[in-house]
Amino acid sequence: MSGFDSNPFADPVDVNPFQDASVTQATSGAENMGEYNPFSSPELGSISGTTIPMSATTTQPAVLQTSVEQSPKAAASAAQADLLRQQEELERKAAELERKEQELQNRSAGGRAPNPGEKANNWPPLPTFSPIKPCFYQDFEEEIPEEYRQICKRMYYLWMFHSATLFLNVLACLALFTTRSSSGIDFGLSILWFVLFTPAAFICWYRPIYKAFRSDSSFSFFFFFFVFFFQVAVYIIQSVGIPTWGNSGWIASISVIGTNLAVAVIMMVVAGFFTVNAFLGVILLKMVHSKYRRTGASFTKAQREFSQGVLTSQTFQTTAAGAASAAAQGAFGSNQGN
């Protein structure tokens, strides 16, 4: 009942809420804790590193920043690539000028004045101190189109094999002559065939096919077909080996088996080489003919090329001028006599 005895009209007592028993107990525990630092926790003490301030981070997209930075670099790279390309072009032109200058010097050293645009002969490859100079210019990579380059090289290899076979034929006939003195005519003819047919084959059928592929010449194609057909026929005759013809063919080699087996074996090897020459000749003749049909060459074009070549030849013009001058002088002299 004591709660009802208080005077409600009395002045209110000034009550301090912090003097409450529960509040006083809580504050007394906080005083014992001291200043609390949340970043000095033991768990955080083992973490070391540099704290990145918030201002250092960027909120812009990476693409925008990269595009702004790479545009000057791309322009610089393009300019550098352009300079390198120009430098390579200048170096290539300088090398070409140096090569042409060297060719002119080689021509001058050869004893004749070089003509503008004329290339220095490089075949046969002879040493510089040799008194005999190269007679032809040959460069498959530069002069022969890529479509015909392989077949042209094969024709060159066939000519080399042809020359090697003729040389071995001389050795085989020499071996036969040492065992049989009556075979001296075969040895002499084998030397003649080697000396005659080696350069003749190069000039008469290899160089025409080289010129035909180089300049698409119909006349050179027809000249090659005409000569090389007879060359294949000669290969067949040489592989047969008719006695006293200067060829170590099959007939000649078989006839020596009973006399000297070693010489017969040597001659059979050469006979096999002649047979391979004939076989390769037939194959390459067909291959060249298939290439010829794609070039658009014709007999009419060959006639026109021949007539133009003869009329523009310096030798023909000189001969014709000399003949005309002699005829004019003769006619003038006869008129004066009358």
Rank of each mutant, 00 (worst) to 15 (best):
P17C: 02
G111L: 03
M268F: 11
V269W: 04
P42N: 10
F332M: 15
P199H: 04
S67N: 15
F332G: 08
D5S: 14
N247V: 07
P72Q: 12
A62M: 15
Q87W: 06
F274T: 01
T128C: 04
G333I: 08
W205Q: 13
C173Q: 08
R149W: 03
R304L: 13
N32F: 08
P208K: 01
T57L: 15
N247G: 05
L176V: 03
A302C: 04
G309P: 00
A200P: 00
E96M: 08
V63M: 14
G272D: 02
A74F: 09
A76H: 05
D139R: 10
Q65G: 04
N277F: 05
W123S: 04
P42T: 10
I242P: 00
I47C: 00
S77R: 13
F136E: 07
L126R: 03
P38C: 06
I191R: 04
L280R: 07
F225L: 11
R149T: 03
F279K: 02
S313H: 10
Q25Y: 09
S55A: 14
Y210V: 02
S290Y: 04
F194E: 03
I251E: 00
G34D: 05
T315L: 15
E35Q: 11
C135S: 15
M1P: 03
S77K: 14
T57A: 12
M287L: 13
M268V: 06
L176W: 01
S40E: 15
F136M: 09
G281R: 01
E143T: 08
W205E: 04
R149L: 05
W245G: 11
Y148D: 03
E98C: 01
P8A: 10
K153W: 07
R214A: 07
S239L: 06
Q87A: 15
Q231H: 08
A113I: 14
T312D: 13
Q80E: 14
P127F: 05
